[in-house]
């Protein structure tokens, strides 16, 4: 099956900003196109970051509701994609914090946590869980949330590490370190599942 690119192609006559401007002028069809263009990348980000489909549906809806509600405050220089993912990221982190599924730890603690073998309950449970989840979901499920966040943002939003660092309120070095640790985790998990 040919893979559809997650990051939407830039099409000159209907850039995100042009479509959003048309939506602000009352053209709902332009909004529909914008939604179609970003829904896959955005939902993928939310579903995999939260690891919870129902929560991801709520977060997805809330993100777009904010886009609609705050349409008047949007400025083109913000870049639509960055604005969209900034809203989604903030909503997701808040929701995960409320559910005690987001641990904000210092980089030093993160490094220590990443070194630890983070095997869950028992090996048998792990195997069963992985069979129902799929390799990728399982590898992401055991990844530290802050690493998963940077990894998914870079993969799904197409924003640069610099933009992601700013969005997550971390220095660029921390964002790069998290990405590197995330890739290492993914690589090792996929290898052990072979």
């Amino acid at each position: 099956m040919p893979r559809q690119p997650l990051i939407p192609p830039t099409d000159v006559e209907s850039t995100d900003d042009a479509l959003f401007e048309r939506y602000r002028g009352g053209d709902t069809a332009a909004f529909e196109r914008l939604l179609a263009r970003h829904q896959s990348a955005l939902f993928g980000f939310l579903a995999r970051l939260a690891g919870d489909r129902a929560l991801a549906e709520d977060l997805f809806q809330e993100t777009w509701l904010r886009v609609v509600r705050e349409a008047g405050r949007y400025r083109a220089e913000q870049k639509f994609n960055r604005w969209l993912f900034t809203i989604a990221n903030r909503l997701a982190i808040d929701a995960l914090r409320r559910r005690k599924r987001w641990a904000s730890v210092s980089v030093d603690d993160e490094e220590a946590a990443v070194q630890l073998p983070d095997r869950g309950p028992s090996a048998a449970d792990e195997t069963a869980r992985r069979q129902t989840m799929g390799r990728i979901e399982a590898a992401l499920a055991t990844m530290q949330p802050a690493l998963r966040q940077v990894f998914l943002l870079r993969e799904n939003s197409g924003l640069s590490f610099k933009e992601i660092a700013a969005m997550t309120g971390a220095p660029l070095g921390t964002a790069l370190w998290r990405m590197s640790a995330a890739l290492k985790h993914l690589r090792k998990e996929l290898q052990t599942m072979e």
């Binding site: 893979r3 997650l6 829904q39 896959s40 990348a41 939902f43 993928g44 579903a47 995999r48 489909r53 991801a56 549906e57 997805f60 799929g134 390799r135 990728i136 993969e155 890739l183 993914l186 690589r187 996929l190 290898q191």
Partner: peptide
């Protein structure tokens, strides 16, 4: 290779 596998995996849809 890990990244390729991640990118081949179908993305969850709303």
């Amino acid at each position: 290779a890990a990244l390729d596998e991640f990118r081949r995996e179908p993305t969850p849809k709303p």
